[in-house]
Design a protein around this nucleic acid. Structure first.
Length: 259
DNA sequence: ATGGTCGCAAGGCGA
């Protein structure tokens, strides 16, 4: 089972690049972030025609997440539990069944800038809510995949120029500590199982020639529960997508599980 | 360097 995460930065702007990548990468499951569309504005039929079931959790203009799956999806949950007043569409989960049943959670963690401030407070509160949700799901002992745009640079090696991120919400000590608390629940950063070295990124800003200078950061992650980590077979970042026509500022990251 | 470049949606916010 090939499971990918891809922050597409607007479905309307990626209406050609996303199907192009799907056709060549042929993932079984895709967690999309920043669809920037309401549910009824998402071109679900286009993806159904490519063999995917579609589940969306959209929002007008901002945020919005979706799941695409070539395998049956059941028990869909929209929205991160823990705050009924939160109107931002940043979380969707479903059980995907191939040879094994896997619970896939797609997430778009808040950016949090500027920090300090209310947006940063929201980011940390959201991470605490995610911590609680992960704990609840871990108790179910099903293989779990938490895939998405975490807006977290876990370590200095995950940025080309870590010095430039010192006061940024993606890299502040409180951000990295909250991310470590998630990992310390027993989750595995799938990418780091295969690649312990520096120089691997998933995002390059549109500004200041970041892509041309390879001034990137690794902020799109797949965290695996122990039962999912035991099934891990392969993982990669589809870096070349950033150099394609009309690209997102993020590229896909994926794992294959023996499931 | 308070810039720079995108996307959404139709002005300014978010990243």
């Amino acid at each position: 089972m090939k499971i990918a995460t891809f922050n597409i930065n607007g479905i309307k702007a990626r209406i050609e690049a996303l199907p192009r990548w799907l056709a060549e990468a042929t993932p079984d499951v895709v967690c999309l972030q920043e669809i920037k569309s309401q549910d009824d504005g998402f071109p679900a039929q286009m993806f159904r025609d490519m063999g995917y079931e579609v589940q969306t959790h959209g929002q007008k203009a901002f945020n919005g997440v979706a799941l695409l799956s070539r395998l049956p999806m059941t028990d869909v949950v929209r929205g991160l539990p823990g705050d009924d007043d939160d109107v931002q569409a940043r979380w969707i989960e479903a059980t995907v069944t191939g040879a094994r049943a896997v619970r896939v959670c797609g997430l778009y963690l808040p950016n949090g800038n500027p920090a300090p401030g209310p947006k940063y407070d929201y980011k940390l509160a959201w991470m605490a809510r995610m911590q609680a949700r992960v704990k609840t799901l871990l108790a179910g002992e099903m293989p779990l995949v938490f895939a998405g745009d975490y807006n977290v640079i876990p370590q200095a090696m995950d940025a080309a120029k870590p010095g430039g991120w010192m006061t940024d919400a993606l890299y502040l000590p409180d951000t990295r500590a909250a991310y470590r608390r998630l990992v310390n629940l027993g989750l595995t950063d799938a990418f780091r199982v295969r690649e312990p070295g520096a120089g691997h990124y998933s995002f390059w800003d549109y500004q200041a020639g970041a892509w041309e200078r390879n001034n990137g950061i690794r902020i799109d992650h797949l965290l695996l529960s122990p039962q999912a980590a035991d099934l891990l077979s392969n993982v990669a970042i589809d870096r070349a997508v950033r150099g394609g026509d009309k690209p997102s500022d993020h590229v896909p990251v994926w794992v294959t599980l023996d499931a």
